[in-house]
Amino acid sequence: MNIIIPIKQVPETSNVKMDKETGTMIRDGVESVINPLDLYAIELGIQLKEIHGGKVTVCTMGPPSAQKALREAIAMGCDDGILITDRKFAGADTWATSYTLSEAIKNMGSFDLVLAGERATDGDTGQVGPGIAAWLNIPLATYVSHVDEVTNTHITVERLVEEGYQILKMPLPTLLTVVKEVSDPRLPTLRGKKKARATEIPVFSTENMNLNEGSLGLKGSPTKVVKIDYPKVTRGGKMVSANGEEGINAAIDELIKFLEEKELI
């Protein structure tokens, strides 16, 4: 089973502090990591390979420094990494990104499965995975939380929807975007890290891919950002301390008054 996993490098924000005045995050010295949701896709890919054989190729579109993310994925157990990088790719929206990634995937030879995280924690759109499926004209299941069965021709998955889990039998090749429930990502091993350092990472760019230049990067993106606002998210709400029997009662009195004012009770 040949599996391709497009991943994204994002700012590491799990331990980031907030600016007390503005309520925005303090981004100084924030490191780059593999998008946390992509780790679930990577783990699933490695597990499927362990059971069914084949290989797992990770790829990422980004600056040359994004190869660090590819090496991390290889250290976890992926076989190959491909860096998709070119100045012309910069500033791509989800439409142009999914176009470029789908063309890169076409250049990777035959595959059975494309696995992606449901969304990236920075852009937070969840549109690139479905976009790749549409460009490749292969079936798509989003929000996949469980793989039930894999045969030579099909994969049966459960996708988490508003009312429960939809169970879909998908023909291969297919694209799945996965949520956290699908797997529990392993840590890289020492041996894996050694292998990752030694693995050669091929580079895909406009020079070795046959791309429509009008569909690339900022220029080729249908959507344009026209304005960025930094909203002050701090609400400056009312704060009360609830200490001791009386303190707690007083705090709850205040809260009841607040709920009444807001017409919430």
Partner: peptide, 14 residues
């Protein structure tokens, strides 16, 4: 910082 109403206290009491 995001709360419209914050109670500083032990949730098991509050």
């Amino acid at each position: 910082q995001l709360a419209d109403f914050g109670i500083i206290g032990n949730l098991f009491e509050v």
